[in-house]
Simulated scan of single mutants.
Amino acid sequence: MRWLPALYVGVILAVEPVTPVQWPVSFLLIALPVVAAYAHGPVAVAAITVFAVVFEGVLAGTPCCAGRSLGYLWDRYYVFTYVSTALVGVLGAILAAHRIRRERTLASVRSVAETAQQVLLSPVPRRLGQVCVETLYLSAAAEARIGGDLYEAVPCNYGIRLLIGDVRGKGLVAVETAATMLGAFREAAHDEPDLVAVAHRVERSMTRRAAQLPGSEVAERFVTAVFAEIPDHEPVVRIVNCGHPPPLLIGRDGVTELDSSDPSPPLNLGVLVGDDYHVDVRRFRPGDQLLLYTDGVTETRDRDGVFYPLTDRIRSWGPLSPRELLDHLHKDLLDYSGGRLDDDTAALAAYRDPG
């Protein structure tokens, strides 16, 4: 964009010698200040406006340009062009100043959004007993759009309890809902004896939260989530899946999707469908790795609109540590989508140390 004014002038220079005398292509320089306003500041636009006026005079008074004589330099039509270019230059400087002000405002909003997301998703300890935990969060490409993707890992008397979730919708309401859910989970993880009780307690908090929302928001606000529990002295993982994409188990037997045998409804919808939460128990041996993720991963598309094949990709990478796995996933998502993610993405990897 910064070279757009130079390109514009180059086009005019290329067209000017081949046009008839009756077609004064130099009049096109009137638009040059506005073109410059797309990429430059007010001072640069003012300088480019002065250049445009001088260049118009050069083109009007140069005999070799379309056979003109010096008499055209002060022809009334050209004088009108000089004045018009100067006025457009003033407009361009105003537009450039407004653009810069909007860019600074947008940068500030982005900073606030990132800070809010960082406060919401507090850092997870990288080692919890026998389990190594790593996390990944990628913001969507849409400017200043705060998402409701969330994750947490809590060590408690029952082992390590993990959570990953995705709040329906975006913006501050989604962030408030995510904060409510995380607060409820952090308390319930310590107090409740099993994952079903944890899910019910979080459900009650979400229902109270939904009741405070206006109008149709009560029925529409729900959260898909996966609760997981890794006991300290059992080679298993317990999972409650509430309408969320299934976790992946990466181990000596390959990569396996841990589909729920009895899927549970998303949080805040259980009271509507009258269903309960079901626990699946899967083997989770030393050296195995559990990957929890939001649908921002699997719904990433390439240029042809094909969804990201997460399971196949991970199978092709071979054994990786949790940090290497998430870093590789981050890079691969950006490459697959052409550098543009249309949804927020969160992932959490938990690795049971063989030692």
Rank of each mutant, 00 (worst) to 15 (best):
V35G: 04
S216H: 13
G305S: 10
V112T: 13
D288E: 09
Q117T: 11
P17T: 05
T115K: 09
G57Y: 02
A116W: 03
H244L: 10
G318E: 06
P263G: 05
Y308L: 09
V237A: 03
T177C: 14
A228Y: 08
E187V: 14
G338V: 07
L162I: 04
A14Q: 07
F27D: 02
T256C: 13
L310W: 00
L13W: 02
A188K: 01
V21D: 11
R99D: 03
F185V: 00
S108E: 14
D295H: 01
L213Q: 04
I164D: 05
E234F: 00
P235A: 01
R315M: 12
L150F: 12
E187C: 09
L28N: 12
R209V: 04
W3C: 09
R282G: 04
L13V: 12
P235T: 05
A116K: 04
P235R: 04
A97N: 08
L13M: 11
L213N: 03
V45T: 02
G41Y: 05
R102T: 12
V119A: 07
F51A: 05
L333M: 03
S26H: 15
A197G: 10
A179W: 06
V124C: 08
I94K: 10
S122M: 13
V25D: 10
D304F: 15
E103N: 11
L87S: 10
L182D: 08
I48S: 06
T298M: 04
G305W: 09
T345M: 02
Q117F: 08
V175C: 05
H40Q: 11
F51K: 05
G71L: 06
A219C: 08
P322M: 07
D191Q: 13
I12Y: 02
F307M: 10
G169E: 01
M181D: 08
V58C: 03
L248E: 05
F185I: 00
T135F: 05
D295V: 01
G183I: 11
A210M: 10
R323M: 12
E192S: 08
V90R: 04
I12L: 15
P214N: 05
P231H: 04
G251S: 13
R168K: 09
L150V: 15
V131L: 06
V279H: 01
K170V: 06
F185P: 05
F222P: 01
V79H: 12
R208Y: 15
A188G: 05
